[in-house]
Amino acid sequence: MTTTASAVPTQADGAIMPSVPASLYRRILRRETHSSRSGAAIVVLIALVIVAAYVGLESVYAALGMRALLFSPIDVLATLLSASTTQGGLVIAAGIVAAVVGIILIVVGVTSGRRGRHTIDDSRVAVVVDDQVIAAALSRSARTAAALAPGQVTTWVSRRSARLTVTPASGVRVDEEAVLAAARDELGATAYQPPVTPEVRTTSTGRLGA
C-alpha cells in the first residue's frame, strides 16, 4: 500500500506547511492507478512493420518475375478490384470489419490502461492499495469467518468485483453466506474506489486433509 503526503497543514520545526491542492492528489492517484498503452502500441507497430516488409518483399519478387513466397500483391489487388464489382456485399463486410478494428485501435491508443490498484477516499492523504493486498485481506477474513485453513480460499480482485473461491474439506459443507458476509464487512470497512462487490463460489470437489 502506497501513501502520499498529508493534505492538511502540518508542522515542521514549528512552521505550518501549506496544504496540498486536491488537483495534485487527483493527478497522483490517476498516475498510480493507470498505465500507458506503450506495450499495445509497440505490438501494433511491430505488426505493421512486419506487414510492410512482407509486402515490400513480395513486390520485389513480382517486379523481378520471381515466384511469390505466399501471394502476389498484384494478384491480391486485382482480386479486390474484381470483387468490388462482382461481390459488393463481401467488400462492404470487409470494410465494416476494417472500420471496427480501426475504431478499437483508436480507443486503445487514446485511453489509458489500468493497473491492478484501488484508491481509498481520504481527505488527508492519497492512498493507493494494490489489488493483491485487497485479495489477501478478503481471503483472511473469509477463512476466519468459516473456520477454513490457509489455502482453502483464493481471491481474485478486478476493478469492480472480487471473486472468492472456496475449496472445502471433503465431506464438510462451507457456509457461503458467512463467507460472503465477512467479505462484505471487510470491503465495507474501507471505502475503496471504485467500489468492489464480492461474490463467493464453492468448488464442487473438496480437498483431503484441509
Rank of each mutant, 00 (worst) to 15 (best):
T2C: 06
T3C: 06
V8F: 02
P9Q: 06
D13G: 10
D13Y: 12
G14L: 08
G14Q: 05
A15P: 01
I16D: 06
I16W: 07
S19Q: 10
P21W: 00
I28L: 07
T33Q: 01
S36I: 04
R37S: 09
G39T: 12
G39V: 12
A41Y: 08
L45K: 09
A47E: 11
A53T: 14
Y54N: 07
V55H: 03
G56A: 13
L57D: 11
A63W: 15
L64P: 01
M66E: 11
R67C: 04
L69C: 06
I74N: 07
D75N: 06
D75V: 14
L77I: 14
L77C: 12
A78P: 00
S82D: 15
G88V: 15
G88L: 15
G89E: 14
I92E: 09
A93Y: 04
A93D: 09
G95P: 05
A98F: 13
V100T: 11
V101E: 05
I103A: 08
V107E: 05
V108N: 03
G109I: 05
G113D: 08
T119C: 02
I120D: 00
A126H: 00
V133L: 07
S141F: 04
A145V: 13
L148M: 02
T154A: 07
S158F: 03
L164C: 01
S170L: 14
V172D: 02
V174K: 00
L187A: 05
T190N: 08
A191M: 13
R201F: 08
T202I: 15
T203R: 10
G206T: 09
R207G: 10
G209M: 09
A210W: 02
